[in-house]
Design a protein around this nucleic acid. Structure first.
Lengths: 213, 213
DNA sequence: GTCTATAAACAGATAGAC
DNA sequence: GTCTATCTGTTTATAGAC
């Protein structure tokens, strides 16, 4: 089995990872056969074993690729020191809009998100890799902003849980996309619908971080 | 293939559906073999084809069973006429706590929720059955309460979207259970943790439905 | 209704030519 | 590094005895 590099692979490896991203994301890992992966990638079946040691190795390479893409798509600029509560709240809303745009709006993210949903539902160890690489740091930065905006402690349980609740609001619109579309009478979730979802959640964040008088 | 009745099946059928509920929920549909289903149910493999026409038929029977169970577990008492805004808000918080208890807390719900996650991630037509039976009516009742509490129109997009955002807050704590547990430093999500999650989200609902002065 | 036995297709992995 | 051909085990589905 070849080593799994930390940089972007090329050629057959890249083609297989892209195929994995698409097929694992839509059909799930188990429902995808190696032959299907190979033909989608336009390469030979045997190359899966050659490059990744087997189907399981390809899955891990796909996870690594997802981590790489996510960290560059939703990378946050570092929180500047001495931010005022109002500025932090403003920034928080901006970040929410970014996350909505990525999770709900971006078509490129579709296989990524689908794949993660599958892994989440399965509860496998693959989540750990994504967590350490993406969710963990992200959550810390959001907590920091939330803390500044509300005047609470960033390490407090209340703040940490609030961040989860906030992310949940976004995730559900991706998760229950079909349900939302139908219930709202939309034909699809385009830029317009994404904007309205972002408006709502950003407004919710504003209300939730407003300090009681 | 035998007809799929609308009442609870018994004997081998019930055993197979229970096995499907457990195995499809934890491992996913495709990763579960018919032999595994049969041995878990304590019956013969051939009975899957006899009773359900095949593995796919069993899946549909499992979906039907989930719809049956959910509608009885989280059935809402009808919203009484002439509810005040305060009473509606109170009731809304109560419902939120029920949903948290069911989705996040109840161990019986684990395979149900896992199975739905798989189906959601797959985007298959199975979701429709669950939607029409459970999500749709539930969403309507929640919208009604939210509308009374805020004074807005229950059919307005804002209210409908708010309900999705509210449900999302709950769902994410189930979806990202491992992540939440780790981040919070919890060992597991027991009754105590469920209570704190319910407190947070109920509090959020209170803030979000409060009328601006 | 439930079983055994088996069929037919497919899975993932590998050996070896080029 | 990529291919063809093949091995071995497992899959779902079915035929037929009881």
């Amino acid at each position: 089995m070849a080593e799994i590099r930390d940089t972007s692979p090329t050629g057959a490896q890249k083609a297989l990872i892209d195929a994995g991203l698409a097929l694992f994301g839509t059909k799930g890992f188990d429902a995808t056969s190696t032959r299907e992966l190979a033909s989608t990638a336009g390469v030979n079946v045997a190359l899966i074993a050659y490059h990744f040691g087997g189907k399981e190795g390809l899955r891990q390479a796909v996870v690594a690729e997802i981590g790489r893409r996510m960290s560059q798509v939703v990378g946050l600029p570092p929180v500047p020191a001495g931010l005022t509560a109002d500025a932090a709240q403003e920034r928080l809303q901006m970040v929410v809009r970014q996350i909505v745009a990525f999770l709900v709006g971006a078509r490129e993210a579709e296989p990524l998100v689908n794949f993660m949903l599958h892994e989440l539902a399965q509860g496998g160890p693959q989540i750990d890799a994504i967590y350490q690489r993406f969710v963990g740091p992200k959550h810390r930065e959001l907590s920091e902003l939330w803390a500044i905006a509300t005047g609470l402690n960033a390490e407090s349980d209340h703040v940490k849980l609030s961040i989860f609740a906030m992310i949940g609001q976004v995730v559900y619109f991706r998760l229950g996309r079909e349900v939302v579309t139908r219930k709202m009478g939309w034909t699809a979730i385009g830029p317009d619908e994404v904007g309205r979802i972002a408006d709502l959640i950003a407004g919710n964040v504003r209300l939730l971080t407003q300090r009681g008088t």
